Amino acid sequence: MTVTIYDVAREAGVSMATVSRVVNNNPNVKPQTRKKVFEAIERLGYRPNAVARGLASKKTTTVGVVIPDISNAIFAEVARGIEDIANMYHYNIILCNADKKKEKEIRVVNTLLEKQVDGLLFMGGTVTEEHVQAFKTSSVPVVLCATTDEKKEFPSVDIDHEKAAYDAVETLIAKGHRSIAMICGNLQDLSNGYARYQGYKKALENHGIALREEYVRVGNYRYESGMEIMEYFLGLREKPTAVFSATDEMAIGAIHKLQDHGLKVPEDISVISVDNTRMATMVRPQLAAVAQPMYDIGAVSMRLLTKLMKNEKVEDNIVVLPHELIMRNSVQDRS
């Protein structure tokens, strides 16, 4: 049978109100009484009913997190930052994978709100008008994590993706490369895929390099699409001397395709990316990349959400964290 608060009170020889104060960390309980209640809880194996506590306080101390792809290492690192800060502020996490599908993302958002979460973190993915409508109907705070909405209506934590891409391509240009191809992400993803394409385009324009349509191909962020697109680049009459990839995973696919053809990185073609996941140091040669502070994005997002849930003062709802260029052996000077 389920052990109730009444059973604990009877076992400890105190009132149910005293047990409630102990369970809810109320300081107005004598240390000796608190010890007696905890001993009774341990003997009986009592577990407080979170649902009942939530109904009483109108708080569940639970945060919903929507993650676009749980198998992607970059989102796993963001989730770790979220979890650490959530634990620090005594919140539990409900993590939901949405498979990068808009319909599933919106369904998951609505499900989490029905579960009476105290706040919502929407991680990655394109924020469409349908997302905006779902967020606007929320009675709890919503923070966008590793993404932003076009109109900047919702609090968000991210990097400047356009500038990150610009810095990566400018590095290739500084190394003497003029024939630079790009493996893009989804161009419908304004805050990520399209922004990185814009950074690539602006870097070329600002250095007087013509944008060549055949040097730009859209991938799906996955290893296999990096391999497929590099195969296409190698079939061009004039091959690029360098490739900028929107993600590490596609960049590694590109490197392996080059090696399959007996070509060397960076001697034949240099490769650089954005993300700097652990995979960047596992591939050979190690991959040069613009590092996103993924753990920090998760941690800062969760901290911002805790402030909003507690109605604390927030200086800035839109947080842009710095990125960093990490040079490794996949890029070679061509000048």
Rank of each mutant, 00 (worst) to 15 (best):
G119W: 08
A134S: 15
N186C: 00
P141I: 07
A181D: 08
K152W: 05
T111F: 10
D118E: 10
E150Y: 15
G176Y: 11
H131E: 10
C184P: 01
N186D: 15
A146C: 13
D160P: 03
A164V: 04
E150L: 12
E153H: 12
S156T: 08
A164N: 05
F122E: 00
A134M: 08
T147D: 08
I183F: 05
Q133V: 14
T137V: 12
L121D: 02
R178F: 01
C145A: 11
F135L: 12
L120R: 06
S179R: 15
G125W: 05
S156L: 04
T126C: 04
E114M: 09
T111A: 09
D167N: 13
L121K: 02
F154R: 05
G176C: 11
E162L: 00
S139L: 13
L121C: 06
V142N: 07
V140R: 10
L113S: 07
E153V: 02
S138I: 11
H131C: 14
T147P: 04
P141S: 13
V140L: 13
V140S: 12
E114N: 14
K136C: 09
A181C: 08
E170Q: 13
P141K: 11
G119M: 07
N186W: 00
A165L: 07
G185H: 06
E153I: 07
I159S: 02
A164S: 14
C184S: 14
T147M: 08
C145D: 02
T148D: 06
E162Y: 00
V127R: 00
V117H: 12
M182R: 01
N186Y: 01
E153F: 04
P141A: 12
I173G: 10
L187Q: 09
I183H: 02
E162G: 13
V169T: 02
L172R: 02
A181V: 05
E153Y: 06
N110C: 09
V127N: 01
D149V: 04
H177R: 10
K115A: 12
K175S: 13
I180H: 05
I173D: 13
A174M: 12
T171M: 11
Q116A: 12
A168R: 04
E130L: 07
F122L: 11
A181W: 10
I159G: 01
S139H: 15
R178P: 00
G124L: 01
K136P: 09
E150R: 15
A165I: 01
K163I: 01
F135R: 05
T171G: 01
I183L: 03
L187N: 00
K175M: 12
Y166F: 15
T171N: 14
F122T: 01
K175Y: 14
D160L: 02
F135I: 09
L144C: 07
L113P: 11
G125A: 03
V169H: 02
T137W: 00
P155Y: 06
A164C: 05
T148N: 08
L112Q: 11
D160I: 01
I180C: 10
A181Q: 04
I173K: 08
V142D: 09
T128K: 04
E129C: 03
N186G: 00
I183S: 01
N110I: 07
T137Q: 15
H177S: 09
